[in-house]
Nucleic acid binder design. Structure first.
Lengths: 228, 228
DNA sequence: ATGATTTTTACACACCGTTCAATCTCAACA
DNA sequence: TGTTGAGATTGAACGGTGTGTAAAAATCAT
């Protein structure tokens, strides 16, 4: 790797780093090429040798953040033995919340309004991360799945790519389990989303305990044994 | 009411109306005084006879939207007899989702990032609407509450105003029930939030059914009988 | 020294909120 | 009826934000 390439990689990384810092400080709209350049001691035009447009930069940021989130959730899950499926669910859930609290603006960028006017590309690393998240959750549900398969759902009710992916990864898992996965996702997401956007702050000082209670109930509802 | 006052009221209403339309079309950042004025055939400065600043306008919009949402939820709930507490929960939940789908940008304005840089005032009509929402949910939980009161929570874990309010409205209701209310809120919010922000669109075509299943499970977990 | 790459400089363009003096409108009063 | 004066509106201006482009200048590997 030549010196040239190394410098380029470093600058690319620094741009992302500064962008994340700016976003953490001032929200998604603080991600402007000019502000980043100011912070780096460069001029705005220079950034165009690294990212073609501002949306490209945002896309990269979202992908990085989402990947980091899923990495964290997966490794927390894998730190709990497979014999404790309830513990694995809890590990995933708590990790997502803690990551969101550490990176509130990142959470907003992924799950909320990205920068005004930004349209996410149909595929790319962000989409890949979302699929990983979905596979991870499905795995957690699959480990707990023991019916009843009421046959309420059909594979045609889901995105073809996703359906194919899941049928390949978890053979025999019925569509009803995927619907349950979506519900689990929503249940994990709800309180965290409310908390990050400040709607719990004015209600309770114990969001962690409430979230934990909710996740415990979720685990029990999956027929698993929640950790003590 | 003089003609002058009538015109003023009409213009005030039209400004809000246009603002909502612009927001629906282009997101929260599309709410600009200049754009509103353009749409109305006025000049930007004229709006300052009606709203002191742009943030004042946004504050009014949020309050109006939140009030409309809570109005809808309350009346849907009240259309179901008190003898059917599960049905009342479902009515509330479905109404919130449907309102959100009809007013996605309104939902974002209330529960997501409002306009960049906007800071909500500590009190005012929006706060009042939030309290109404909380009271409404607490009422639904209270109708289902039959313990167990494990005494896990304390009134000091909640906002003093809220605690006082709830103790006055629902005498005898323990703090644990309020914690459960927050959990219920999160559970209702999660899937709707994911759906509004487009995270279900790429997974399933049946968000309504999944949400209904989740709400049915929620009602059952409250010890109530879900409607057929 | 040469040639590719990066960066600066300078523009063009389009927005935004807000203020202010001047103008217009129109209801009420003399 | 004509005048007056408060309120509504304009239009221009100020000061700021931003994205993106193109040519010139600096940098650096070869």
């Amino acid at each position: 790797m030549s010196r040239r390439e190394r410098l380029r990689a470093e600058t690319t990384a620094e741009i992302k780093e500064i962008a994340l810092k700016l976003m953490a400080a001032g929200g998604p709209d603080a991600i402007s090429l000019r502000a980043i350049a100011r912070e780096m001691g460069m001029t705005a035009g220079a950034i165009y040798s690294y990212y073609a447009t501002r949306d490209d930069l945002v896309t990269t940021l979202i992908a990085d953040l989402y990947t980091a989130l899923v990495d964290a959730a997966e490794s927390a899950r894998d730190a709990v033995p497979v014999e404790d499926p309830g513990g694995r669910v809890l590990a995933w859930a708590e990790t997502v919340r803690e990551w969101a609290l550490r990176n509130p603006e990142g959470f907003r960028l992924i799950y909320g309004d990205a920068v005004p006017g930004y349209q996410p590309p149909a595929d790319g690393p962000a989409r890949e991360a979302e699929h990983r998240a979905c596979r991870g959750l499905t795995g957690l549900v699959a480990a707990a799945w023991h019916g009843p398969d009421k046959g309420e759902y059909d594979w045609s009710h889901f995105d073809p790519d996703l359906a194919e992916d899941i049928q390949a990864t978890f053979p025999g898992l019925p569509p009803d389990a995927v619907a349950l996965t979506v519900r689990v996702w929503g249940r994990m997401h709800g309180l965290v989303s409310l908390e990050i956007y400040g709607h719990l702050r004015t209600l309770t000082h114990e969001p962690a305990a409430i979230y934990r209670d909710e996740m415990t109930a979720l685990i029990a509802s999956l027929g698993l044994t929640p950790p003590a």
